[in-house]
Design a protein around this nucleic acid. Structure first.
Length: 487
RNA sequence: GGCCCCGUCGUCUAGCGGCCUAGGACUCUGGCUUCUCAAGCCAGCUACGAGGGUUCGAAUCCCUUCGGGGCUACCA
């Protein structure tokens, strides 16, 4: 079916009216994976025809997010390409020319109806239970009428003429879909100020950029007949129309569109929170698609190798941060220590735990393995390791209380003595000393015995393994911290 | 309201007429392990929205119904 001889060209064309969100990225990922899987070209295009809402800042942020995720594009902002420019705001003349052409061929016409008039008629149609949408009032305007409207100072929009009949297309994910044109009213191509609307710009660009496959959100499903109408008016042969695949939605936990209310949407937020790009990609790939064979842990490369649009689900998926966290933990554990260090460092520096000097790096390389399997996101690294980099600790009320009882005090005193007398400060000696003193000699339960020491030295009852922590902290600081807490 | 899309464990999914007394993962519960927290291991809970067909046989095909979602802009 999709045996087009021409090489595959797919585009990711967001309208960056804010930071790229989870849904955008899932689409981008599938676009990218499809292009890479088929050996095709991945095009990044910016749909910024709505100048009010799209800013340069968001455009650059979108590019940065894609780069961070590893979704590299072959054509688009920053890399160029022979079908550019790739910012629609720089292609306005092209759309205007096509608009002119459609006007001449009578595929489109000027419409002078005002917003108020349109709204009134829409309401009336709704009341009469008739199909809503444009009623075609300006389809066949006489010269006098045009003259009259002009003299009233009306500025026309350019409206596409939808012929009678219906449009049927084969969606790669949903199969055959048909829309009767009686429910697809004549639609606006250009605003009265001459700027293009999405429908015009997207269709024109897809044709001009030789796009072969359009993978996009299912919210655009019902605009497909309009797009096809444009191809037709542009003189594209039917067998050369791009193929469509409408991706299912990514929704929030409450089954409504994902938004701030029911989960965090911005990719930037996940990045700041210490989620790994490979985890995000892996998780998002599992929303609406499955690698098969009960596989779930896949790299970007594997996604590209395995991805097939035909295997994409048609039903919407709920975004579940718990699963994302589980995957993120897996990905963190799969990191080498050098990678783990590299990824954690920004968080440690941001948290003002370290400044990044050589001495610190040496300690980190030893400390990081202790926490690698204990965290879910990189943002937990600073709090887990800060005790290694501060001079003295200030305990919170809760922790102080936990070590003020007689037994804890006794444990601290005994530990202090035995540790002070230690000749060699290494893991083996520390462990041996504490175990024999607290567990054997005093017959304490490990939990009771080590907890006070842990709190005294790391500041928290949750910490990396105790003996390793003491070794890394060093004898002086360990002893200072314990004695400081003996009443 | 109209048009369109969708409907398997709580969630993501496997399943494309017999391999399904429905598999995997996350979550949750219990256990093992254990210096805390994790990780790891084992076990358990829970699903084909409903009703009709077709068929020797249906989660898989058809119809109806119910439920959810999208579109219905000079947004995308």
């Amino acid at each position: 079916m999709s045996s087009s001889k021409s090489p595959v060209r797919v585009r990711f064309a967001p309208s960056p009216t804010g930071d790229l969100h989870v849904g955008n990225i899932r689409t981008a990922l599938f676009d990218w994976a499809f292009a890479r899987h088929t050996g095709g070209t991945f095009i990044f295009r910016i749909e910024d025809t709505d100048k009010e809402r799209v800013t340069d800042q968001y455009i650059e942020a979108a590019a940065e997010t894609l780069r961070w995720l590893g979704l590299d594009w072959d054509e688009g902002p920053g890399v160029g390409g022979e079908y550019g420019p790739y910012l629609q705001s720089e292609r306005l003349d092209i759309y205007r020319e096509w608009g002119e052409k459609f006007l001449q061929t009578k595929d489109a016409y000027h419409c002078y109806c005002s917003n108020e008039e349109l709204e009134a008629r829409r309401e009336a149609a709704a009341k009469a239970h008739k199909a809503p949408g444009y009623d075609g009032a300006c389809r066949e305007l006489s010269d006098e009428m045009i003259e009259k409207y002009r003299s009233e100072g009306r500025k026309p929009v350019l409206r596409m003429r939808m012929p009678e009949g219906s449009t049927t297309f084969h969606d790669l994910i949903r199969g055959e879909v048909t829309f009767d044109h009686s429910f697809v009213p004549d639609f606006v191509l250009m605003r009265s100020d001459g700027s293009p609307l999405y429908t015009l710009a997207a269709a024109v660009d897809d044709v001009l950029m030789k796009i072969t496959h359009i993978l996009r959100g299912e919210d655009l499903l019902s605009s497909t007949p309009r797009q096809i109408r444009l191809y037709q008016a542009m003189g594209v042969a039917k067998e050369s129309y791009p193929l469509f695949a409408h991706l299912p939605f990514v929704m929030g936990a409450d089954n409504t569109k994902l938004s701030k209310r029911n989960g965090e949407v911005s990719i930037a937020w996940y990045r700041e929170r210490g989620f790994l790009p490979e985890a995000l990609c892996n998780y998002l790939a599992l929303l609406g698609w499955s690698p098969g064979d009960d596989r779930e842990n896949v790299s970007l490369e594997e996604i590209a190798a395995l991805f097939e649009v035909e295997r994409v689900n048609s039903s919407p998926a709920r975004f579940d941060i718990k699963k994302l966290e589980a995957i993120n933990g897996d990905k963190i554990r799969a990191l080498t220590i050098d990678q783990f260090l590299e990824r954690s460092l920004p968080f440690l520096i941001d948290g003002e735990v370290v400044s990044g000097n050589q001495d610190e790096l040496v300690i980190l390389k030893k400390a990081l393995p202790l926490i690698q399997e204990r965290i879910v996101t990189l943002s937990e690294v600073p709090q887990m390791l800060s005790f290694l980099f501060v001079g003295s600790l200030t305990l919170n009320e809760d922790s102080s209380k936990k070590i003020s009882d007689p037994l804890s005090q006794e444990v601290l005193q005994a530990s202090l003595t035995v540790l002070t007398n230690l000749k060699d400060w290494n893991l083996e000696e520390i462990e041996k000393a504490l175990r024999s003193e607290l567990l054997e000699k005093r017959e304490l339960k490990p939990r009771l015995a080590f907890s006070p020491v842990r709190i005294a030295v790391t500041g928290s009852h949750i910490s990396p393994p105790l003996f390793e922590s003491l070794e890394l902290l060093g004898k002086d600081r360990t002893i200072a911290r314990i004695s400081a807490l003996i009443a």
